[in-house]
Design a protein around this nucleic acid. Structure first.
Lengths: 96, 96
DNA sequence: TAAAGTAGTTTACAATATAAACCAAATATT
DNA sequence: AATATTTGGTTTATATTGTAAACTACTTTA
C-alpha cells in the first residue's frame, strides 16, 4: 500500500539540505546553515550522513585563510530524492 | 525558509495512519494494520501518540466477544495533516 | 482441557536528532 | 605581544523516537 520512505531522506534537516542542493547544485556550509536554520553541529552531522551515502559530495578547501566546505548533490542523490518525493506523495493524498 | 514539520506527523507510520483515516474517516485496528503493513505493537504505540495529541479518537468496544479498536480522525488532526502537507511540499520542490 | 488464535499492550533496546562542548586557526583588541 | 573574539566547523553526550519482541487477556477449536 504505502511505499517505504528512504529513512536517510525522511529527516527534516537532511531533506532540507537535499532540497537546497537540488535547487542550487552547489552550496557552502554557511549557506546551508542559513537556509536550513540548523545549528552548525547538527548540520555537520547530517552532511556527513548524506555524504557517506553518496547522496552528496563534500569538498573541503580554504578561502581567505578560512576552511570552506562546499556540498554538491550527486546523481544518486537526485534519484533518491525523486523517489522519496514520489513515495511521500502517496501519503499526502490526492489533493497533491 | 523551510517551515517546521510537525514531528508527530513526520513519522512514516503515523503519517500512513493519518492518511488512511483521512480517506476513510473511520478504521479498525486490523484494517490499519493491513493498510500500513505495520506490526501490531508499533501500530498500538503510534495510535496512542496520535490519540494523546487529539489528532484521532480511539473507541474500544467488543465485537463478537473480541476487543475492537476503532479510530477516527479529529478536526484538529485534519488541520494538522493539511498543515503538514503544505509544509513538506516546500521541501519537495516545484515539481510538486 | 490443552492448544491455537484474536486483538491488542508493554517493555526493552536500537537508531536518530540535537545541543552543548570542543578544536584549530585567523583576526581584532588592549 | 598577549589576550579575546570570530570563523568554520567537528565531536560527544544526551534526549527523543521508533520498533520488534515479549507479554497479557480472553476466545475458539480440537
Amino acid at each position: 500500500m504505502f511505499k517505504e520512505l528512504d529513512p536517510l531522506l525522511h529527516s527534516q534537516l537532511r531533506l532540507a539540505i537535499m532540497s537546497v542542493l537540488i535547487s542550487v547544485k552547489e552550496a557552502e556550509f554557511s549557506y546551508l546553515k542559513e537556509k536550513t536554520g540548523a545549528t552548525a553541529g547538527n548540520l555537520s552531522v547530517q552532511i556527513s550522513k548524506l555524504s557517506e551515502a553518496d547522496y552528496i559530495t563534500v569538498e573541503k578547501t580554504f578561502r581567505d585563510n578560512y576552511p570552506l566546505t562546499v556540498c554538491k548533490v550527486t546523481g544518486k542523490g537526485i534519484t533518491a530524492f525523486d523517489t522519496y518525493v514520489k513515495a511521500i506523495k502517496e501519503y499526502l493524498g490526492t489533493k497533491s
